[in-house]
Structures are given as C-alpha cells and as structure tokens.
Amino acid sequence: MAAECKQANAVYTDRDGAYELRFTPIASAAAAASNRFTVKVLKTPLVLDGYVMPSEDPARSLAMVMFKCPDGDATGADLEACTIWQGMVYGIDAKGTLDNLQPEAGQAADKILFPGIGPAIRASSIWGKGKASVAPWDVLDFKECAS
C-alpha cells in the first residue's frame, strides 16, 4: 500500500501503537524543508511538529521533532529548547533497503527509521505523568495513505 502513496500523505505507527506519525503537504515551492509531519502521542493531547530537510556532503535527510516552539522569529536557543529530537531519518522499502527519506512528492516508504528517538523522548519535557509514558521504537510502520 505504501507504493501507491506519496510521502506527503503517508501515516505511520510505532509497534506499541502509542505514536502516530502523519506527513502533510508543505504546499510551498520556496520551503527549505522536503517534508513536514506531526507526531501524535496517542492517549494524550500531545502533538509534536516535525520537518525533514535535505543536507549535503554527503546527501542525507535531516529531521527535527519539536514541541511548542515559538512562532515567528526564534533564536537558536529558543529552537534548541523546544527540539525533542534531531538526526538523520531514513526510509525503508518493502525489500528492507535503507535510503534517505523521499521528498513529499516521492513514493512513501514502507517504514521510517528515526535512530534514537525513543531515548530522546524519555529525556524530554514531554515525558512523565500525564504525558508520554511509552518510548517509541525507532522504526515506524506504514499504516495508511491519508487523502
């Protein structure tokens, strides 16, 4: 089913069913990001924002997951304080081949790999009583294609 979906419409879930990763179109040719997504911590009101940006030398897909970042002009310190996780993000196809995540118009990955996101969430401000209580596995599986 992922093969028939664009990355911008792909929805993923972790193996414990505690998180949902939902890509949404950026709708701007001028955007620096190649993908935009949200991470919903299921059974809580928490929703995290995320972006994927291409990096160079070597070419990689760099992602950031943020919580309650300020709108408008933000300093580097502001962004650092609201960033839950950042690192390389990878798409995995049906054969198990690991590659950079495709841009939003590309074919959706069968799985997404966020190395170390679980420990980062456990160490963040969204962890604790009444918040996130299950750390996600680093691999999220394709769930559906949103319209």
Rank of each mutant, 00 (worst) to 15 (best):
L140A: 06
S28R: 13
T13G: 15
L98S: 14
G76E: 02
C145G: 13
D49R: 04
P136N: 15
M88A: 14
T83Y: 04
G106A: 11
D99V: 00
A146R: 11
T24N: 10
Q7E: 13
K68R: 15
E104K: 00
V39T: 12
A33D: 00
K43E: 10
P25H: 08
S147G: 14
A108M: 00
L79H: 01
G72Q: 07
A81S: 14
P54W: 07
A10M: 05
A33Q: 05
F114A: 07
T38S: 09
E56G: 11
E104Q: 10
T97I: 09
G87T: 02
G87R: 12
M66W: 00
W127V: 02
F142K: 04
A77V: 01
M1W: 11
W137L: 01
F142M: 11
R22Y: 07
L46D: 00
Y90V: 05
G130C: 14
V134F: 14
A18P: 04
K129D: 15
Q86V: 10
W85S: 03
Q7K: 06
I126S: 11
L140S: 04
D110A: 15
A32K: 14
F37T: 09
P136F: 14
K6V: 03
P103H: 05
Q102E: 13
M64G: 10
T13S: 13
A8P: 00
T38P: 00
D93V: 11
S133K: 14
P45M: 00
L42A: 12
F23N: 13
P45H: 01
M64L: 10
A94Y: 03
R15N: 12
A63C: 07
E20Y: 02
C69E: 05
A81D: 15
F67A: 14
P58V: 01
A63M: 08
R36F: 09
S61A: 15
V52C: 07
E104S: 04
F23Q: 06
A2R: 01
V11F: 12
A8G: 00
E144L: 07
E80K: 13
L46M: 01
D138S: 15
N100G: 05
A59Y: 07
F37R: 03
G17S: 08
S125R: 12
V41P: 00
L46G: 01
L79T: 05
A32H: 11
S61M: 12
K6A: 14
E20A: 06
R36G: 09
Y12V: 06
D138W: 08
D93Q: 07
T24C: 10
D71A: 06
L113P: 02
A18W: 04
P136A: 10
D16A: 07
P70M: 14
Q86K: 15
I121T: 02
A33H: 05
S125A: 08
V134P: 09
R15D: 10
Q107I: 15
I92D: 08
C82Y: 10
